[in-house]
Every structure is written in structure tokens, then in C-alpha cells.
């Protein structure tokens, strides 16, 4: 059974909008079920590598119901398959479950998403900034963070 059929039968409520594009599978996952689905994909479907975990800020996109989407880029070595799962996260409730316990690779990737987008991961062992310094105000990759804004640690503040 193909992975998309497996997912849509086992998680008919949680995983939606599965579609194939360029040999890659894309789909949405309910953010409350993200850990469950990820653990299933890893343990039972062979998606053993979390290649990437990132976020996109869809501020002002009319067709997007929620502001943020977390993108999980999973790769299965055995089947040579790739799946991109996306979880919608709203601005008011910018919290999602951490998948650090499923793939330790998520540890730093989730720290980066927290650093750049300000999304909290519940269950993360040490959610602190990774690329920016702790004193940094705001989250730089959000679309409403101005590109020319400066926050120098030393010297005159503007």
C-alpha cells in the first residue's frame, strides 16, 4: 500500500490534502496530531530521516487560514520516498508539539524556528535561541519584522 493510502486510511481526520507533485508527497497534518503521525511515520513507515523542519509565515495570504505553517521534510531511505507534512499554526496560539523525542535532529531545527518565528514547541528539552543572541527582541524571519531594523548589542541604538 502506498504511503499516501496508508496515511489517509489510518489518519483520515488528522492528515488531509495529500497530493503528489514531482515525485514528492505533500500534505497537511493537524497540529495536535503531529507527534503521533510523525512517530507512526518513523516507526511503521520507515521515514527514518527528518531532513528539515522549517516554518513559513503566510502573513496577508488570503487563502491561508492560519498565519504559520511548519513544514516537516521527511525522507524514507528504504523506500526512497519523501514526504512534506505541513502543520497550520495560528498567530494567537503559536504553540506546537515538539518532535524531538521522535528524531533528535528536531532539537536544533525547532530551536531555529523558535528563534526566527517565535513558535513554541511543547516538550522541547531546551528551547532557546540558536542563531541570534538571547537579548534579541522579536523574531527576525516574521514578515512583520522590518528588514532594515537594527538591534546592535553595543554602540548607539537606533
Amino acid at each position: 500500500m502506498s504511503i499516501s493510502a496508508t496515511l489517509s486510511t489510518k489518519f483520515s481526520q488528522e492528515v488531509t490534502d495529500l497530493k503528489e507533485a514531482n515525485g514528492q508527497l505533500w500534505g497537511y497534518v493537524d497540529k495536535r496530531a503531529v507527534k503521533k503521525v510523525c512517530a507512526y511515520l518513523k516507526n511503521d513507515c520507515g521515514f527514518n530521516i527528518l531532513m528539515d523542519l522549517t516554518c513559513v509565515d503566510y502573513l496577508h495570504w488570503e487563502e491561508k487560514a492560519d498565519r504559520f505553517e511548519i513544514v516537516y521534510n521527511l525522507y524514507s531511505m528504504k523506500a526512497n520516498e519523501r514526504i512534506f507534512l505541513r502543520a497550520r499554526v495560528s498567530e494567537d496560539d503559536a504553540v506546537i508539539d515538539s518532535v524531538d523525542s521522535v528524531w533528535p535532529a528536531a532539537n536544533w531545527l525547532e530551536r531555529e524556528v523558535w528563534d526566527m518565528f517565535g513558535i513554541r514547541f511543547t516538550g522541547h528539552p531546551g528551547l532557546k535561541r540558536i542563531l541570534m543572541y538571547e537579548e534579541f527582541q522579536g523574531h527576525a524571519l516574521r514578515k512583520d519584522y522590518n528588514y532594515s531594523k537594527r538591534q546592535p548589542l553595543i554602540g548607539p541604538k537606533n
Partner: peptide, 29 residues
């Protein structure tokens, strides 16, 4: 594996460019 995740909003500028840096994973381990 080096990969660029590019999102387009239909304008002439990329909406989001995410690069998967290969040594990020190695450094985290």
C-alpha cells in the same frame, strides 16, 4: 544533502527561501 525550499507568492521576489545546510545536522550531533 543541500536543499533549497523556495516558496513563491506569484510576485518577482521569493516569498521564502529556506536552505537545509548539511553541516547543521552534523553540528547538532
Amino acid at each position: 544533502e543541500l536543499g533549497f525550499f523556495v516558496v513563491s507568492d506569484g510576485t518577482d521576489k521569493p516569498y521564502r527561501v529556506r536552505v537545509r545546510p548539511p553541516c547543521f545536522a552534523i553540528m547538532s550531533a
